[in-house]
Simulated scan of single mutants.
Amino acid sequence: MNDKGTGNKNMNNCPLTYALNLIGGKWRLPIIWALSQNNTLRYNELKRKVDGITNMMLSQSLKEMENHGLVNRKQFMEIPPRVEYSLTEEGKDLIPALESLAKWGKGMKNKEMDRCNK
């Protein structure tokens, strides 16, 4: 950042900030993780896997992630209608980074617990 107030503009060009905007929010990571563990899920199956999510938030999050190219939506023209969700290749590419972040978080949590128990 510089002193001329253009820091926000520079942050919007940052690849890390861009990535975090794609996956940020309360529900996107749990949805991505559920899809990564199950390959393909129907809407209600996914809703059961993401504890506490409302229909509105699940629908909105899936639509946003579909628009960003992270989630596939496949609709089957049958009665009753069936829709399945899965990760795109771009969504799958995110999983190793999430696993690394989880490992880092676990280490940090253990260190904090060690500090609190001393």
Rank of each mutant, 00 (worst) to 15 (best):
E84W: 02
P96Y: 06
N21R: 03
L87Q: 03
S36V: 07
E89I: 12
W33T: 15
Y43H: 06
G107E: 13
G25K: 10
K92Y: 12
I95H: 08
V71P: 06
G7C: 00
T6K: 05
S61D: 06
M57W: 06
Q37A: 14
F76K: 05
Q60A: 13
K109V: 05
M56C: 03
G91S: 09
G25V: 08
E90M: 14
M108C: 12
E84V: 14
I23D: 04
L58S: 09
I53R: 08
I95G: 09
Y18H: 12
N38S: 13
S59A: 14
C14Y: 01
S100C: 06
L70F: 12
K109Q: 12
T54L: 05
K74T: 08
R82Y: 02
S36W: 07
V83W: 03
I53T: 10
S86R: 04
R28K: 15
L22Q: 02
Y85G: 04
I23V: 14
P80M: 02
L22N: 01
A19L: 14
L22W: 00
T40Y: 11
K47E: 13
Q37K: 15
I23T: 10
K111Y: 00
G107R: 11
A34V: 06
T6C: 01
L20I: 04
P30R: 11
A102Y: 09
E84D: 13
M77H: 05
D3C: 08
G69W: 07
P96V: 11
K26I: 11
M1N: 11
K109P: 01
A34K: 06
W27H: 12
E64N: 07
I31V: 15
I32Y: 07
K26T: 10
T6L: 05
L29D: 01
T54C: 04
N12D: 00
Q60T: 14
C116T: 11
I32N: 06
F76M: 06
K26E: 12
S86A: 13
N21Y: 00
H68L: 15
E84R: 07
T40L: 11
N8S: 01
N10T: 03
D114G: 03
R73N: 13
L62S: 03
L16I: 06
L58R: 06
T6R: 00
K103T: 14
K106F: 14
E90K: 15
E89H: 09
G5T: 06
N117E: 11
N12R: 00
K111V: 00
V50F: 09
K4M: 04
W33P: 04
A97H: 12
E64R: 13
E99P: 01
E90A: 14
R73L: 10
N110D: 06
L46D: 08
L87F: 02
M77P: 00
L41Q: 09
E89W: 11
A19Y: 02
R115P: 02
M113D: 08
G24C: 02
